[in-house]
Design a binder for these strands. Structure first.
Lengths: 262, 262
DNA sequence: CGTTCCCTTGACCTAACTCAAAGAATGTGG
DNA sequence: CCACATTCTTTGAGTTAGGTCAAGGGAACG
């Protein structure tokens, strides 16, 4: 069922209604880096079997709470948040389906920031020991997870560049390109469209702008026919021009580019 | 030899002339996290024995070059740089004495950014195998290095917050507080003074501002008697107020606060 | 002792912010 | 299924933090 997305006159239904979200994003992501044996797949699946559902805008782990192990997002968008005393907030990472984040904070095993959901999420919390066991038995899993960690780090650096020296439009364009690639690697992109279950204020807090200015920049992107965005569904109308505008070079995500500009 | 630093009327000699930089910053840093046996210390020392000296403003590793293993800075300030096509630059990390950075970039073992010196540096490049060997024999070293990695990551997040939602003055104040703590953990702070062998433009490129505005913000910090800065030597005159201004909370560095405000 | 790099200052500009309020959606309870 | 409440998005008007350009003054370096 290929979609005709030539015109932004799009229906506003989600691309992936909750029921038909592709199964294990986690496996899909890991297998992009390493072939996994049937047992490895099973072991990984068991790890996340006890995942729980969280509504949107809910804290999964608050700053100061003791924490250990990893958190794995299976469905929905979550994020890492840091707060300032004046109430200002900064999102320092998006956690998409298949993403994991380490919770070990070293000596002091307490969160130094908050992890919360942006949309409704399904999230597994995996204790260190369980993870260690799997990783010890399945080196391929260890290797794949290590790749994820490297990518996460490269992404943090890329975000610093984004916020540090790009204009408002460029920042947003860059974010959209990044999300496209990350989501497509876990099968959550159809054509050039993906669900972006996030408010404009969330985007603002991610790229270091005000919500008003994000709104205006989005309109500029729409006017230039680079994107269509409504009802929390984003379509990239012109990948070529959008990625050029953002100076987006996907190598930091270590993903093969399977972007075909429709 | 305690210094009288009540007045910013300071002599402009470096705090640590090249000759008397404290020996192995690396060991000092690792031992802040883990006690090391004599053999472990020796093994680590051997690892960095082949360090080379680089002049200021020199690329150690350029974007696109194949790379592997780790880089360990023993003396001087280095940094990770990312460039934009228009020539704009963003520093995404400071590499201080004792800091290391992984060079494995995963599948594609190529640098996705450049590492260069800010001041003259002594840097060791350690191949994976050599490091692996040491780490395998000395779990304490592995553990300490793991801590460093977690701290590096937390620092990246903190920088995103810094650039994303603080004012110019706050950003610079935050950077100075961070550097103070990091340098003091490797014995490179005397009283409240440390060498900051970096231009104002470097600072600008670090915190996402223009050099002109950094200059003006520095003057504001001086006028408020929070810092003294001249001849590449920084003195924090009022840690209390400076860290409050920056909303600096040192926990992400996992260092015991041994800050005594003179 | 000249050259180069760095810091400083001034004048002007603009990208992005704030405040405020009106429409759209979306959700909720009756 | 409708009425109400809430949360988002959009728009307008005015402000400001920080940028740009340009040029002079120091300090450092070969």
């Amino acid at each position: 069922m290929v979609q005709a997305l030539r015109h932004p006159a799009v229906e506003d239904r989600p691309v992936f209604p909750a029921a038909e979200v592709p199964a294990s994003a986690l496996l899909q992501k890991l297998e992009a880096f390493q072939d996994l044996s049937a047992e490895a797949r099973k072991a990984v699946s068991r790890l996340v079997a006890s995942a729980k559902d969280y509504p949107a805008h809910t804290d999964i782990l608050r700053e100061g709470e003791p924490a250990d192990g990893v958190l794995i997002v299976l469905r929905g968008f979550a994020c890492r948040n840091q707060f300032r005393q004046n109430g200002a907030r900064q999102i320092t990472a998006f956690l998409l389906p298949g993403d994991h984040c380490r919770l070990e904070t070293g000596l002091i095993n307490r969160m130094d920031h908050t992890i919360s959901t942006l949309s409704p999420c399904r999230v597994a919390r995996v204790p260190s020991e369980a993870l260690q066991a799997v990783v010890r038995q399945h080196p391929a899993v260890r290797q794949a997870l290590r790749m994820c960690i490297l990518i996460n780090e490269a992404t943090l650096r890329e975000w610093i560049v984004n916020i540090g020296c790009r204009t408002a439009i460029e920042r947003i364009a860059h974010l959209f390109c990044e999300l496209h690639l990350r989501l497509s690697s876990v099968g959550l992109v159809r054509g050039m469209t993906y669900d972006l279950p996030v408010t404009q204020t969330d985007i603002a807090v991610t790229v270091g702008l005000s919500n008003v200015h994000v709104n205006r920049s989005l309109q500029a992107l729409r006017k230039q026919r680079l994107i269509a965005l409504s009802g929390r569904r984003l379509t990239i109308l012109d990948w070529q021009r959008l990625s050029e505008l953002a100076e987006f070079s996907p190598s930091y995500l270590q993903a093969e580019r399977r972007i075909l500009n429709g």
